[in-house]
Amino acid sequence: MDKIRIQEFIVVEGKDDTNAILRAVEADTIETGGSALNASTIETIRLAQQRRGVIIFTDPDHPGERIRSLIHEQVPGCKHAFIDIKRAKSKGKVGVEHADPEAIQDALQSVHTIAIAPVDEVWTIHHLMRAGLASGAGSAERRSRMGELLKLGSCNGKQFLKRCNQFGITVDEFEQALRTVHKEEEEQHG
């Protein structure tokens, strides 16, 4: 089976991430060298964004989110790929390098671009609370599953809310994912 060719450069944290990406797809990567993001790397990412586009694909942990945020602030218009923490875990470690090729392909097929124009729906903490995704028993697990279904990655309530707004998640998308979560919970407690 032929690998999918990704046009955009994929920004990852290190060499092991590049190797994992190349097992899954054909692509060019830019390695940040971990959280020590320097001006030269930012310039390389900026040029890549101008020429072919960029997909930021960092680890689903705090340092990965920090790198993602720094790049996003300095190089607008990048796409974002998120991998669920459960699919990026091996032997107690978390990272893109621990994901299997299928998980990487799924993440790259579900990239998001931050909405530049205002979106119709603006999500607030009240929406999350009514949906049982903030403050309450099981909210973190529900939010994690919603993040997986909406391809937003695992995140805390504040990050989840921000991503729903940034990526223009619609009411229909949100409600469909929430129905799936509720159905799964019913089946578990059946």
Results as ranks from 00 to 15, higher is better:
A107M: 04
F174S: 01
A107R: 02
H182F: 06
F174G: 08
P76K: 14
A27Q: 07
K79D: 09
S90V: 04
T58E: 04
L133A: 06
V96I: 14
Q7I: 14
I114E: 12
R179F: 07
T32C: 02
L128G: 07
G136W: 07
T41I: 12
I4G: 02
A134T: 00
E186T: 11
S35I: 02
E26V: 06
G92V: 09
A36E: 00
D100R: 09
G136N: 10
W123Q: 11
T32A: 00
E141N: 04
P118A: 14
E102Q: 15
M146T: 00
R142T: 10
D2C: 02
I169P: 06
Q74F: 06
T58W: 07
G34P: 09
E31I: 01
M1T: 15
E73Y: 10
H80M: 01
F9I: 04
E185R: 05
A117H: 11
G138F: 13
R142A: 13
H182R: 11
H98R: 08
T44E: 09
Q49C: 09
A39D: 13
L47H: 04
D17Y: 08
I116Y: 01
T29H: 06
E175Y: 00
K91A: 11
I10K: 03
H126Q: 15
P76R: 13
M1R: 14
D84P: 04
S110P: 00
I125T: 15
A27T: 08
D61Y: 09
D59M: 00
R66W: 00
R66P: 01
E121Q: 15
T32D: 08
H112K: 12
E148H: 10
R68V: 03
E97M: 13
R46S: 15
V54T: 05
T58L: 04
R87S: 12
E65K: 08
A88V: 05
E187D: 14
V75W: 08
M146N: 01
G92W: 14
V181F: 01
P118W: 03
I56S: 01
R142N: 05
G92Q: 09
S35M: 00
K86P: 00
S90G: 09
P60N: 09
E187I: 13
S144Y: 00
E102A: 13
V25N: 07
G157F: 02
E148R: 09
R87M: 10
G138C: 13
S69W: 03
F9W: 07
A88S: 14
I169R: 02
L149M: 11
E31F: 00
I71K: 04
I6A: 06
R52K: 15
F160K: 02
I45Q: 01
E31G: 03
L128F: 02
I6N: 06
I10M: 08
T170Y: 07
D106I: 05
A81P: 05
G92S: 09
P76I: 13
I169A: 04
I83C: 07
I104R: 04
L37C: 03
Q109S: 10
K89R: 15
I114A: 14
K86E: 06
L47I: 11
C164A: 15
H126G: 09
T170I: 07
F82M: 14
I55T: 06
I114F: 04
S35Q: 05
G138I: 05
Q159H: 12
I30M: 01
V119W: 03
A27F: 05
S40Q: 11
E186I: 02
I55K: 02
I67R: 01
